[in-house]
Structures are given as structure tokens and as C-alpha cells.
Design a binder for these strands. Structure first.
Lengths: 204, 204
DNA sequence: TAGGTTTTTTACCACTTGGTAAATACACGA
DNA sequence: TCGTGTATTTACCAAGTGGTAAAAAACCTA
């Protein structure tokens, strides 16, 4: 028995929902939930406000939809960290994936940052139900690697925090970095620096 | 010739301005500029909205006042990093000061994060005029230390970014950390971890 | 191309928001 | 305790906010 209540959406629906979510991502990631307005989303999407409310039941639903989509994308790089691989390689690859995400999906990173900054009012449950188990699992994995002498002794939890913070920083604090650093040095410099940093840190 | 245009503020003025700014810090740091409302500030401060506008000319002025105060506090730890001290000691002490600030002034950290996340619309000039020169000066200092063989070869700019991101993370992403980690392990664990991390990274 | 269906627009509405004017209450030195 | 400047409240407003109802337009298939 499939969940056949909804018929498949038309091409127009697909296109417009996509446009709206893309515009909403811009607005929500820049202003946070409270600071975002449907009028701003409407203008950015090139779709009238009532028309937006034809596709989504309200501001909240748009935000929640974005957050749900984000959660998958967000967990993915950590999920891929494989227990059967070489520990150092796996961890450095994880850092690289996170850094790639900060470069390719800065709006998503800021949307997440905004939500957490505001106390995770809408994503708290998701964090507890989805992220927490994954986090614990990967912490245990790293712990194992350490016990096997494959990695230096570090607290896996703080290790992961430092990976998150250093990589996401390039997306979330881009406005500050742009002031302090010529654009060119940004991209490559970060990769080399973080690679060296975590290699040193994790070498047993 | 002193700037004698303003007479010294009364006790009531001092007290109320302080109350308002404290409440505003709560509200702005949680919701960002657009998401914050004077009504929220008023309720939190226990002062009516028109009365708040008796002390400040408007929402913008309150926010700017907070940002200006913040800038001093924010630059301070970096200013204190002394060229005449031992490089490793100085840098680790800097990390510690930043970590202390994340613990003691999480609202300020979030206010700053919010402003940068939104593209630094109000603090951009401040960053360029105040932070940038200080940043360049300290980068040069670290460069010197490296050339003297006192520190490992790292890009000073990315080093500072990684210090900022790892320390501020504990304030800005507190909501996430609270989900992932029992409160107890948070405080001490971070200090030990970051100390070990930057010691390894910077040892020549 | 006629018909119903989907999509979009127009015209609203109640509530919130930043801000103001003026009247009122308060503090405090002479 | 009186008067004067200070502080606070009351009563507003215009603009912006999330959201709705219903008509109009565009779309699509028979």
C-alpha cells in the first residue's frame, strides 16, 4: 500500500516550488526565520505572495521544508566516513567534504548556522533524533581507531566540533574573511591549512 | 576644548540605558537585526517602548551602540598578544582568552556571528578600519615568529581563522552542542582539546 | 474548441512594527 | 514645598506583516 494520496506534481508545480525554495533559502539564510518576510521571498522568486501561499501553506512550512532538505545534505559527509577505510584518510576526506560543502553550499551553511544561533527552535528534535545517533556512532568509531593506535589520542567529540567549526567558518563568516583576505588566497589556502592541521593533530 | 555638548547623564539614565542595552543584547543576539523587535526589547527590559525611544533615537541606534561596544571587547584579546613574549605561550594564551570569552560572553559572540552572517551590513566599515589593521599586524608578528623558527610553518591568516572558529563555536553553536554532549564534559574538555591541538600544530 | 482544472491575480484583512505627540508623573535642588 | 527640568505613560499612526477569498487567466485534454 503506497501513500497514494498526492498525485504527482505537474511541471509547473515542480518549477515554482523549486523557485520559491531557492529564493527562500537566500532570504532565510541571510535574515534568519524572524527576519525573513514572505514579501522578500516573493520578490526574489518573482512570484506573487498569494501565489507562493498557493504552493506552501505558510512561512513556517517553507522554512521547515528547507530545514528538512538541509538535514540530509548536512549529515551526508559524516555518514560517508567509513569504518573499513584507513582512519587518517577517512578523517581527512571528511574534512575535505565539509570544506567543499562550505564552498559549494554557503547558503545552506548559513541557514543552519542561523537556526542553531537562534537556539534551534525548529531543528532541535531533528538534531536529537538524526544527528545525535550518527554523532555517537562516529565518535565510537574514532575511539576505536584511537585504541588501535591508528590515531593520536584526542576527544572525538571535540575533534568533530573542530572540524565542523573550521570548515563552516569559511561559509558562515565569509563577510569577515572577504574584508581580511584577498579573495584569491582563500580557496586553496584553507584546504592546505586544514589538511596540515588535522594531519598533525591526528598523527599518532 | 573638550566635547562639552552633552551634560553628564543622571543615575536613572545610566541605569535605564544599561537595562535597555542588556535586553537588546538578548534580543538582537538571538534573532538578528531584522528579527528583533522593539516590543521584545521593551518587554525584556521592563521599560515601555516609547520610553526606550526616549533614551535611544531608534532601533538602529541601539544596534549600532551594541556593535560599537562589542568591537572593543572583541579586539582586546588579539591586541594583548605581545610581540615580546614567548610565541607559543602567547598564542596559547590567546586561544584561552578567546575560549573564556565564548564562555563568559556568549551573547556578544552570537551578536557578532549574526551580524557577519547577514553580510556585516552595519559592521563592514568597522571591520575594515579597526580589525583589518590589527589582523595584518598580528599576522606579520606570527610570520616573524615562524621565520625565527619559534613556530611551525603555517599560514597566519588561516591560523587565526581556526582559532576564532574553534573557540567561538562553543558559544555560537551551543544549542547543537547541548544536544550532542552532556553539559559536564563541555567546559574542561574544550580547553584541554584546543590546547593540545594548537600546541601540536604550532610546535616547530 | 469546449470544458473543467490548475495557476495567478486582485483586493482585501487583522495584527505587528518602528516611531511620534502630547499629556502626565516624578525627582530634586532652591 | 515649590517650581522646573526629567522621566514615563497614553493614545496614536503609517507602513509592513502573514494570510485569505474569490475572481480571472492560463492550461490541458477530450
Amino acid at each position: 500500500m503506497t501513500t497514494g494520496t498526492e498525485k504527482k506534481p505537474s511541471r509547473i508545480q515542480l518549477r515554482n516550488r523549486h523557485r520559491i525554495l531557492d529564493a527562500a533559502l537566500n532570504v532565510f539564510s541571510q535574515h534568519g526565520y524572524r527576519g525573513a518576510t514572505l514579501d522578500l521571498v516573493a520578490k526574489e522568486a518573482g512570484i506573487s505572495k498569494p501565489n507562493i501561499l498557493y504552493y506552501f501553506s505558510g512561512k513556517e512550512e517553507i522554512h521547515v521544508t528547507l530545514l528538512n532538505q538541509l538535514m540530509e545534505t548536512w549529515l551526508d559527509p559524516l555518514i560517508e566516513m567509513d569504518a573499513s577505510g584507513d582512519p587518517m584518510t577517512e578523517l581527512l576526506a571528511y574534512v575535505q567534504r565539509k570544506l567543499d560543502m562550505a564552498r559549494d553550499l554557503p547558503r545552506e551553511s548559513r541557514l543552519f548556522a542561523n537556526e542553531i544561533l537562534q537556539g534551534a527552535p525548529r531543528m532541535g528534535p531533528h538534531l536529537a533524533s538524526d544527528l545525535k545517533p550518527l554523532f555517537d556512532e562516529k565518535c565510537a568509531l574514532i575511539e576505536t581507531w584511537i585504541h588501535e593506535g591508528k590515531l593520536a589520542k584526542v576527544d572525538p567529540r571535540h575533534l568533530i566540533f573542530s572540524i565542523w567549526s573550521t570548515t563552516q567558518h569559511y561559509a558562515d563568516f565569509e563577510a569577515q574573511i572577504d574584508v581580511l583576505m584577498p579573495k584569491r588566497a582563500k580557496e586553496d589556502g584553507a584546504t592546505d591549512y586544514l589538511n596540515a592541521m588535522f594531519t598533525k593533530l591526528l598523527s599518532p
